[in-house]
């Protein structure tokens, strides 16, 4: 553990990783129960276009990614609502177009290099101090907003019609949840990379849902699993010289497996 106390980059990675992973897990519970688990995967691919655009325009890639992800998330929502397209189809369209745009922009920017790969596969250990604070700040805001609207989100996830009838502005809250998801995906991208970020959203939440007998438990268990995965994942990655992103995701999957077996017994 000594290294974790001495090396600044390890501390930064740990702090940012834990906060972001817990925000991902929290939203993941809602997304899974809304049958929207794949939106994380789709938005992550769109984020690639944002990063490439940032590199192309020489603007901080993270900020561009945030803008593009939020727009894409709202686009997916509208496509579903207005055009009568199934949710998974809308996600598939947006994710592939995002990826395609990203490839074009990256080629134009001549930036198919280490930088871009770090976004694809994650490079949490290289996270800069400014990004750490941005990530933590945004993750805290996301968690705070979800907690503030906890019962509303739970109600509309469980029974949309009754929620509407009780006067809850389901349409507006849908948009809010969609924006929160987009922001969280971008943050998660910094931790485990575009290709693995949906794992942070889905796996800890799916594991928590295995054992939870009520909603509060599901939220708490999922957050704990996210916390443990990042903590142990980073320690293992550091000492065994593994890539952090892969280690974190595999660990969370092992915890999911453990919960799954435990539930069957």
């Amino acid at each position: 553990m000594e290294a974790f106390l001495t090396y600044g980059f390890l501390q930064r990675a740990l702090l940012a990783g834990i906060f972001v992973a817990m925000a991902c897990a929290l939203l993941g519970v809602f997304l899974i129960l809304r049958r929207d688990a794949m939106i994380g995967h789709g938005l992550a691919h769109v984020t690639f276009a944002g990063v490439a655009l940032g590199l192309f325009l020489k603007i901080i890639p993270l900020s561009m990614a945030l803008v593009i992800a939020v727009l894409a998330a709202l686009g997916i929502m509208k496509l579903k609502e207005k055009a009568g397209i199934y949710g998974d189809t809308a996600i598939a369209i947006f994710s592939s177009v995002g990826l395609a745009l990203g490839i074009l922009l990256a080629t134009l920017a001549h930036s198919f290099n280490v930088d871009l790969f770090s976004y694809l596969f994650g490079d949490i250990l290289a996270i800069e101090a400014s990004e750490v604070w941005l990530s933590i700040g945004l993750a805290v805001i996301v968690v705070f907003i979800v907690i503030l609207n906890y019962h509303k989100f739970m109600y509309m996830t469980f029974d949309q019609e009754a929620a509407k009838a009780s006067g809850i502005k389901v349409g507006r809250l849908d948009i809010l949840l969609t924006i929160l998801t987009a922001v969280t995906i971008v943050l998660g991208m910094k931790v485990v990379g575009i290709l693995l970020v949906s794992a942070l959203v889905v796996i800890p939440a799916a594991a928590g849902l295995q054992l939870a007998s009520n909603f509060k438990q599901a939220i708490i268990l999922s957050s704990i699993i996210a916390f443990v995965s990042v903590l142990l994942g980073l320690i293992l990655a550091f000492y065994l010289d593994f890539p952090a992103s892969g280690t974190i995701v595999i660990l969370s999957f092992l915890l999911f497996g453990l919960f799954f077996i435990f539930k069957r017994r």
């Binding site: 469980f158 929620a163 009520n214």
Partner: peptide, 17 residues
Amino acid sequence: FFPASAREVVAMEFLAR
């Protein structure tokens, strides 16, 4: 399979507003 207890189902309506 929704993970909500009976109490939470009632709380949704009670505490959502």
